[in-house]
Design a protein around this nucleic acid. Structure first.
Length: 709
RNA sequence: AGGCGCGUAGCUCAGUGGUAGAGCACUACCUUGACAUGGUAGUGGUCGGUGGUUCGAUCCCACCCGCGCCUACCA
């Protein structure tokens, strides 16, 4: 007894197989059974392929119509009996009454015929996956045909070695596993495709079925001395698209001629592609390259993620969830978007659903974000992950960033065009030295991120520097210098720094945001003394060596920032109007604090909007407090601050500090930690405990004062 | 079935063996002379679960749960 999901294939059966160790049946191996309805005798064979636990433990073998059975057939030298025509109807190898039946009909008829003979045991439901054609959804039947194959092993071996030896590197490196997995289990490559377009396979047949391969028919006739009396027909099939594509790295450069451009552009440096293409194209380019050019086609393969929609689904026309980059750049109204998404669908019945989800997701269509914002978004999203979930909110955020850069440039131009700039770095302010130091840092970051293909990190560094250092702090720090009738030398130096840092950061950002940087650079560049190029495209990428790292300036500015943030914090939380200048008292200032107060008082006054700064030598009045190291920054309450609110704020802060303190004390209390941890880590914890304890003490003292009111 | 990968703030994602980060969203206040596509401040997380290694794990290891992709197959 055998089981089958395709009864009609029994006409093509050429054996019944059992497992070699199956004691129920192994005495029958080598004997024959009669195949019903056909009168043929077929052998009982033993093969490991059979799962003795499944069904009856006996499997009918149909080599011409099943992939596994085909393999079994090869092992046992069984005949391959084709029972179907090209149209999947039964052919003359089936009993007369079945010939010409479509396979579905033949299936029912075969079952009925078996039943009539009393040979049907039972019919059971069985769930299984059935392969279907992509476009027609028709069930695909395995069917023997003659097709062309490429013997792959001799090609695969050197291609595997190219990656093993590091002549080709994947980035991220992990993808080499995917490559190896596929290449080491590779099977001969069927290159025949039954399509009406493509490169026809260059094989010709004569009337006797002899095959001739050549460049074209004339070549074949010459090569094989066939005169016009021999009719030649070219193979109907075309080459697999990846076969032609695999030749791309050199065929595009004039190969097989040894052209200059082939010499120059082969091998290439890097191939950029998606991981879904590793098998299709990357592997095949490597195989073809090592075969025909005797060298790898490229040295690095940068694999990026695939853009998915907001639900994490792959974008596809048939699903109607595609976003056209042009629509992000130029914007599109809802009706046009709906029309666009539903027009070229392969499955029209999904139209309504696509329309509905589009109207829901984009009720106002898509606003115009511009090319730079879109490019910046893709750079920022190019992480090492394999999915890129596209999120319009990100594009909007980076559109705003473009706007920020534009406005910063306006400020610089407004302050520097038609005004005197210093020619050198003399008279530079603390802020000037600081921003240049930070610029050196961001240039290093961006360069190393780019070199390792971490475009997300590069974008992040650029964003962080431009917005949160250059705009938030540096531009603000230049205002007190530029806007007061101050030192003319200092103003000239500041303008010099404003312009040159901007010019440099434009070049740094240009690969990601080409248009806005080019536009601004065209004007900013005329103010510099560095470059005379007409286009930013020809300017060199910034080098950090061109800028001075100034650790002192960095710590001084950190101090200034903490001071200012401390005051803003009090303002924000105590509801003090930003417009109201506040007096500030400084208690327990160290010598260094005092020096800095002296030197940078103007900056503090401007940025924190202070009425006055007073060094306190007597007991402080009730005040709101911020800590800067050991120094207390006090804003007297008198009329502007609510004691209750300040108490709540102090308690919140102190609670946080206490938690940290407990954690670190705990650590230091652990002998093993002190013994095993690196000394610098222990040292850091010790220092932290001291600082936290001191801060808590100071805040407690403040609480006591405020509480006593 | 095999291979690869993912799970971190409401959302989209960085990140590190040593006190958890960004953008967006959210809350409060602010049209101050580059910018309201903005500014200032703030809220928000037992880093999927359980064990193990370690002085210490979000990170390393094992197992589990959930999700995804690729390849092969399913008498």
């Amino acid at each position: 007894m055998v089981a089958t999901t395709r009864p009609e294939t029994l006409f093509g059966d050429s054996a019944v197989a059992v497992h070699p160790k199956d004691e129920r049946f192994n005495h029958l191996v080598g004997k024959f059974v009669e195949l019903p309805l056909t009168g043929r005798r077929i052998p009982i064979i033993a093969d490991d392929y059979v799962d003795p636990e499944f069904g009856s433990g006996c499997v009918k073998i149909t080599p011409a119509h099943d992939f596994n059975d085909y393999e079994v057939g090869l092992r046992h030298d069984l005949p391959k009996i084709n029972i179907m025509t090209d149209d999947a109807t039964m052919n003359e190898n089936t009993p007369e009454q079945f010939v010409g039946m479509p396979r579905e009909e033949a299936r029912e008829a075969a079952v009925a015929a078996m039943e009539a003979l009393g040979l049907l045991d039972s019919v059971k439901d069985h769930r299984m996956m059935v392969p279907r054609g992509d476009r027609s959804s028709a069930v695909v039947e395995p069917y023997l045909t003659d097709q062309w194959y490429v013997k792959i092993e001799p090609l695969a071996k050197p291609a595997i070695e190219a990656v093993e030896t590091g002549r080709i590197k994947f980035v991220p490196q992990n993808w080499d596993k995917t490559y190896f997995e596929w290449m080491r289990n590779i099977q001969d490559w069927c290159i025949s495709r039954q399509l009406w377009w493509g490169h026809r396979i260059p094989a010709w047949y004569d009337d006797n079925g002899n095959v001739y391969v050549g460049y074209d028919e004339a070549d074949v006739r010459t090569e094989y001395s066939l005169d016009d009396s021999v009719t030649l027909t070219q193979d109907e099939d075309v080459l697999d698209t990846w076969f032609s594509s695999a030749l791309w790295p050199f065929s595009t450069q004039g190969w097989p001629e040894k052209t200059d451009s082939l010499n120059m552009f082969y091998p290439g440096a890097v191939l950029v592609t998606g991981f879904d293409i590793i098998f299709f194209w990357v592997a095949r380019m490597i195989m073809m390259g090592t075969k025909f050019m005797d060298d790898v086609p490229f040295h690095e393969v940068y694999i990026h993620g695939l853009v998915k929609d907001e639900n994490g689904d792959k974008m596809s026309k048939s699903k109607g969830n595609v976003l056209d980059p042009l629509d992000l750049i130029d914007g599109i109204d809802l009706e046009s978007l709906v029309a666009k998404r539903t027009s070229s669908m392969m499955q029209p019945h999904l139209k309504k659903r696509v329309e509905k989800s589009t109207r829901k997701k984009f009720p106002d269509g898509i606003p115009a974000f511009g090319t730079d914002a879109m490019r910046f978004t893709f750079a920022a999203l190019a992480t090492t992950g394999r999915d890129i979930r596209f999120d319009l909110a990100r594009v909007e955020g980076y559109r705003n960033f473009c706007n920020k850069l534009w406005n910063a440039a306006r400020y610089v131009l407004m302050n520097c065009e038609d005004k005197a700039l210093a020619a050198s770095s003399e008279h530079q302010s603390l802020a000037d030295r600081w921003i240049q130091s930070r610029l050196a840092n961001v240039i290093d970051e961006v360069r190393s991120s780019m070199e390792s293909y971490r475009f997300d990190l590069a974008a992040k560094s650029i964003y962080e520097f431009i917005w949160h250092e250059y705009c938030d702090w540096y531009l603000e720090l230049t205002k007190p210098i530029l806007q007061n009738d101050g030192n003319v030398d200092a103003q000239k130096a500041t303008r010099h720094t404003l312009v040159h840092v901007l010019e440099s950061v434009l070049r740094l950002s240009h690969p990601v945001m080409p248009f806005i940087t080019a536009e601004i650079w065209a004007r900013v560049n005329t103010l510099t003394d560095i470059s005379s190029d007409e286009s930013i495209m020809n300017a060199s990428f910034p080098a950090s060596d061109d800028w001075t790292v100034d650790a002192c300036a960095e710590t001084d500015i950190e101090w200034v920032k903490h001071f200012v943030v401390g005051i803003r914090n009090i303002r924000g939380e105590m509801d003090v109007s930003p417009a109201k200048p506040v007096p500030v008292l400084c208690q327990d200032a160290t010598k260094e604090d005092q020096d800095r107060l002296q030197q940078h008082g103007d900056l503090l006054t401007a940025l924190a909007r202070l009425e006055s700064i007073t060094l306190l030598e007597v007991d402080p009045p009730p005040a709101a407090t911020a800590l800067l190291g050991t120094m207390k920054i006090l804003v007297p309450m008198a009329g502007i601050i609510d004691p209750k609110a300040e108490l709540a704020r102090l308690n919140r802060q102190i609670e946080k500090l206490r938690k940290d303190l407990a954690q670190n004390r705990n650590k230091l209390g652990n002998e093993k930690f002190v013994k095993n941890a690196p000394p610098e880590v222990v040292e850091k914890a010790t220092q932290l405990v001291a600082e936290l304890a001191a801060s808590i003490e100071q805040l407690e003292a403040q609480i006591a004062i405020v509480d006593s009111l």
